[in-house]
Simulated assay, not measured.
Amino acid sequence: MAKFLISFVEGAMRVPEAELPDVVKAAHAVVDEAKDAGVWILGGGLKNHSEATVVTPERTLVDGPEPSANGAIAGFALIEVRTYEEALEWAAEIAAACRCDQEVRELLPSART
């Protein structure tokens, strides 16, 4: 089994305000489906990137980090599935529910589990 991060960046979800309840309902349905399938680990939306704090190696706190070239993650799902193809299938379900593209990345194996 492998773990995958499925995520989208700030600004990717361009949904009219009136349609947000439908998006939330659809997203919750996919989460419930993933839980029922036993693949769901964790997921959720994140506060705006501008509200983040960076902690440097020197233990200095920096408010409002610089945006990355790829954009800041706005929401994510962490799943555990047998194959990359299965992860892509879940990402497609999430993309349809959230109405935005999803990035799929496999987590590297950890020396400590």
Score class of each variant (00 low, 15 high):
Lys3Thr: 14
Phe4Pro: 04
Phe4Lys: 04
Leu5Tyr: 13
Ile6Trp: 01
Ser7Tyr: 14
Ser7His: 13
Val9Gly: 09
Gly11Met: 01
Gly11Asp: 03
Ala12Gly: 09
Ala12Glu: 11
Arg14Val: 14
Pro16Ala: 04
Glu17Lys: 14
Glu17Leu: 13
Glu19Arg: 03
Glu19Ser: 08
Glu19Pro: 05
Leu20Pro: 07
Pro21Ser: 02
Val23Asp: 06
Val24Met: 02
Lys25Met: 03
Lys25Ala: 05
Ala26Ser: 06
Ala27Leu: 09
Ala27Pro: 01
His28Cys: 13
His28Asn: 15
Val30Met: 02
Asp32Ser: 09
Ala34Lys: 02
Ala34Gln: 03
Ala34Pro: 05
Ala34Ile: 02
Lys35Gln: 08
Asp36Thr: 14
Ala37Trp: 00
Ala37Phe: 03
Ala37Arg: 11
Ala37Asn: 09
Val39Gly: 04
Val39Leu: 08
Val39Met: 07
Val39Asp: 03
Trp40Cys: 01
Ile41Glu: 12
Ile41Leu: 15
Leu42Gly: 06
Gly43Tyr: 03
Gly43Ile: 05
Gly44Leu: 00
Gly44Val: 10
Gly45Asn: 04
Gly45Phe: 03
Asn48Ala: 15
His49Asp: 14
His49Ile: 10
His49Thr: 11
Ala52Thr: 12
Thr53Phe: 11
Thr53Val: 15
Val54Gly: 09
Val55Phe: 05
Val55Lys: 06
Thr56Phe: 06
Thr56Met: 05
Thr56Asp: 08
Thr56Lys: 01
Pro57Glu: 02
Glu58Trp: 08
Arg59Thr: 11
Arg59Tyr: 13
Thr60Gln: 15
Leu61Gly: 01
Asp63Asn: 12
Asp63Ser: 14
Asp63Gly: 12
Asp63Tyr: 08
Gly64Asp: 12
Pro65Tyr: 05
Glu66Pro: 09
Glu66Leu: 14
Ser68Asn: 10
Ser68Gly: 14
Ser68Val: 12
Asn70His: 11
Asn70Gln: 11
Ala74Gln: 07
Phe76Ser: 00
Ala77Val: 10
Ala77Phe: 10
Leu78Met: 10
Ile79Asp: 07
Ile79Glu: 07
Glu80Asn: 01
